[in-house]
Computed example of a mutant assay.
Amino acid sequence: MPDLRLVIFDVDGTLVDSQAEILAAMTHAFDAEKRAMPSREAVLAIVGLSLDVAFARLCPDADTGTQARLVAGYKDAFSTQRAQNADHGPLYPGARAVLDMLAGQDNTLLAVATGKSRRGLDKLLERHALQGFFHSEQVADHHPSKPNPSMILTAMGELGVDRARAVMVGDTTFDMDMARAAGIANIGVSWGYHAADQLQPDILITEFGALPGAVDRLVGQ
């Protein structure tokens, strides 16, 4: 259908506030390797990247074996935390209402493009009762890390939506750069893990309730 439009969401820092989980899992991974934990700012700066790329940036002096153990330790710690504490990783205020609104529009398709693994995304969707909510789910297991446009291009290809009718919603420069590389519009959110003044999006929103109007402005109704 020519009038279909696609809204692609980043996850951590955009839909879900995973900051506490991310920092705790990072601490566990670095402690296990007896390495100094990077600063909070350094950790949040790499949120959104695939884990292998993220740890390569955080630990450029570490060999590949050490980086692989850090990735594995992080994944295990993150998974354990989610199993033990259902209060971690809440949706941002207003997120669910806006997702329900957009999902109720006949010509609007929803997707996610995330640096999370398939396992991590599945657990998050289950926790927030969002299974089957997104028409395309692109994860780090099957793509190069952001800002490579592979995830966006795959989602558009799967759903048959033109670039002019697709928009990326994210909180990091990686999301904005990925959208630009794919040739689609982008919406930055102010509540995430990169400073809002770094994003340079087509539109910056400061509350979830402003998202539907921003989508309409960029890709039409």
Rank of each mutant, 00 (worst) to 15 (best):
K75P: 00
I152P: 02
R163I: 08
R163V: 10
A97V: 13
D175P: 11
L70R: 09
M101Q: 15
S79F: 05
A29C: 12
L99C: 06
I205S: 09
D63W: 06
C59V: 11
P90V: 03
A214C: 05
A113I: 05
I152E: 01
C59W: 01
A20L: 12
D87A: 14
S150N: 08
D175V: 07
M37Q: 14
I46E: 12
S136P: 07
Q81G: 13
D175K: 11
D63A: 01
D202P: 03
L159A: 03
Q84A: 15
Q105L: 05
W191M: 02
E126Y: 13
V161C: 08
A54H: 00
D31P: 00
R119H: 14
F55S: 01
V43C: 04
T173H: 11
F174E: 02
L91K: 00
W191Y: 11
Q67C: 14
M101V: 08
L218E: 02
L15S: 04
E126A: 15
E126R: 14
Q198N: 14
T108M: 14
A97M: 08
A29P: 11
R127A: 15
A36Y: 00
G115I: 03
P149Y: 01
G13K: 11
D17R: 03
D216W: 04
G160F: 06
A77Y: 04
P212D: 11
K116G: 10
N107D: 15
A45G: 13
C59Q: 13
N107Q: 15
R69T: 12
G115K: 09
P60V: 02
T80S: 05
A97L: 07
R40D: 14
F9I: 07
V71P: 05
G209Y: 02
C59D: 10
R180I: 04
H142D: 15
A62S: 12
H143E: 11
V167Y: 08
S79D: 10
V47F: 03
A140E: 05
L99F: 07
R40E: 15
L23Q: 09
A62D: 03
D63F: 08
L130G: 06
Q81F: 12
T172C: 03
A210M: 12
H128F: 05
L23F: 08
P149C: 00
D12L: 05
N107W: 01
R118P: 02
G160P: 09
P90E: 04
G213E: 14
G183V: 06
L153G: 02
G120A: 03
K75E: 13
V98Y: 07
V112D: 10
G89R: 01
G192D: 06
G157S: 12
H88G: 10
A68N: 04
A83W: 00
S145M: 07
E158G: 03
M26Y: 02
C59A: 13
F30H: 08
T14P: 09
V11L: 10
L121H: 10
I187E: 06
V215T: 02
L23M: 11
D141P: 12
L51G: 04
P212W: 06
V189P: 07
P147S: 02
T14W: 08
V219H: 03
A195L: 14
S50A: 15
A24K: 11
H88Y: 05
G13W: 09
D76I: 07
A56H: 10
A95M: 09
R96K: 12
I184T: 06
F55G: 01
P2S: 13
A214M: 09
V112A: 09
